[in-house]
Design a protein around this nucleic acid. Sequence first.
RNA 1: GGCGCGAUAGCCAAGUGGUUAGGCACGGGUCUGCAAAACCUGUUACGCCGGUUCAAUUCCGGCUCGCGCCUCCA
Length: 465
Amino acid sequence: MTFKIYNTLTRQLEEFVPAQPPAVRMYTCGPTVYNYAHIGNFRAYVFEDLLRRQLKYRGFAPCQVMNLTDVDDKTIKGARAAGRPLQKYTQTYKEAFFADLQTLNIERAEHYPAATEHVPEMIALIETLFRKGYAYRSEDGSVYFNISRFENYGRLARLDLAGLKPGARIAQDEYLKDNAADFALWKAWSPEDGDVAWDAPWGRGRPGWHIECSAMSMKYLGPGFDLHTGGIDNIFPHHEDEIAQSEAATGVPFSRYWMHCAHLVVDGRKMSKSLGNFYTLRDLLERGFTGREIRYVLASAHYRQALNFTIESLEAARAALRRVDEFRERLAAAAPGGPASQPDWLAQAHNAFRQGMDDDLNTAEALAALFEMVHAGNRLADAGRLTPVDAGAALAALDDMDRVFGFLAAPERKPDEAVLKLAAERQAARSRRDWPASDRLRGLIAERGWLVQDVPDGYKLKPRA
RNA sequence: GGCGCGAUAGCCAAGUGGUUAGGCACGGGUCUGCAAAACCUGUUACGCCGGUUCAAUUCCGGCUCGCGCCUCCA
């Protein structure tokens, strides 16, 4: 069995074979730090995290670079509006971004280069493009890439240049380019930029968005690398432009595999502030959902399929995870231990999990395999036929699957003294068969966020979540 | 206009030329002082019209509806 992925470049399912296994050099387009990232952004980051974890699971050693765009139109505008220096402004959102990654149990990449710290590299790259005749300076001091010089332009997006229709989205008079389809490598300083500017041989200004990713990927991964990922909307123009710039400058193929994550919609509609269906991660946490539940929802659909995100799906995630947690608890209670075992029901589920993930990260299939395992294990346990050895093996399988899923481990929460005391009082009331007092105490405990469950030999306290 | 994607049960969501995906919700049951939780169990769906085929939700064609991108949106 091999790890297959859908390569946007060829529009085909391909076996993933990095240039120098086990190393995998991968670049993932990161956030523009002008605001809190929203749930749609995080779908892409969770997808990339699943990919990263799957690579590790398969024995690869990823070196992942995720850029932080901390200078562009939006960051400059946002900083001005906030009346703060650009660096201070973006710092706030960089920190929020990393906190959010942690909330979602997203593993850290090896490198998080910030655009503002790599301007010299970008200038050098643009100089190379000048030298090779791909770049030109316009009257106002901006620099553009001449796409007519790059014959493969449009290959990734499958766009026919002749079919490009200059439409409403392009302000023809905004920039002074030779060809409307040319894109900016460098933007000449304008008064709105304030003190956000760098000196370059061709004039003062700031780098364009695309050149940032080319310069930083080359610096950390070399001129050509294995895998590049991002949101589907980045295919054109961002990734197309990255390819053009990079290959024009280096003469070697840029990324060999490209993977793109489909969009997330909320309640079946594109997320937008005016529809009131726009969520940041923080919004959802404030509503009482956990990062774990959110991660589950984001991971539960195939990454190339539009994901319909709803509050109900978060509630479904909560219930599904509770079931996994109960199963895990049950396994742990079976006093597992002894020699390793691999009963059929477990091997089957475990294999189905691997096959699902190997098949272009089919998380929905892998998740189904997980629940097949829960189901089979519970049945055996109910029948009193789950041996401690098999329970231990099942626990190990859960942990193994969680290397990729990253949401199977139940967070530990301990009730405080007051709750423990109430629960003890309730138990006392129960033993003297004082049901009204017992029920009243159950209510008090619930108010403190805990659920009492009566079990044969006493009671259990569960967070109400 | 160009390129591309989708339509699967109440909701979410895989997949397959014939054999139960899975989750949530709901019904029934076990357990329980009552509950809750948990577990077991049940509900057999593939937009429309043609075609190919012994057999189509799956392949082909058309249609309808919805969505994305088409110059700096994950």
